[in-house]
């Protein structure tokens, strides 16, 4: 059976509104646009670097809506002292990227 995405729809809606507030270009946000938002979490830069690596699934230097939701989810987990994993758990991979 299809593994449900770890990000629930109400969380996704919250992340989507942040995504849209950052003015995505053709549905993508550049690293420069995302960086201030993630730095706002006051997390150490090496943690944010790992969050980026895990969420920029296609490694294009940009985050689309789903990748951005993964990044935000990982940041919130890190803020609750959940260590950021070394690799993306399957349940976190957006259905669009499986």
């Amino acid at each position: 059976p299809e593994l449900p995405w770890a990000i629930k729809s109400e969380e996704k809606a919250k992340y989507d509104s942040i995504f849209d507030s950052l003015n995505p270009v053709s549905g993508l946000l550049s690293g420069e646009k995302v960086k201030p938002v993630l730095l706002n979490s006051k997390l150490p830069v090496d943690i944010l670097g790992r969050v980026w690596e895990l969420s920029d699934i296609d490694h294009d230097g940009m985050l689309d809506r789903d990748e951005f939701a993964v990044a935000m989810f990982l940041v919130y987990c890190a803020l609750e002292k959940e260590p950021v994993p070394m690799s993306l758990p399957p349940a976190l991979v957006p259905p669009s990227k499986r």
């Binding site: 830069v45 944010l48 670097g49």
Partner: peptide
Amino acid sequence: QFPTGSSSTNPFL
């Protein structure tokens, strides 16, 4: 993927 990642696509590295 490598945890350190490449600075070309990662704005934090």
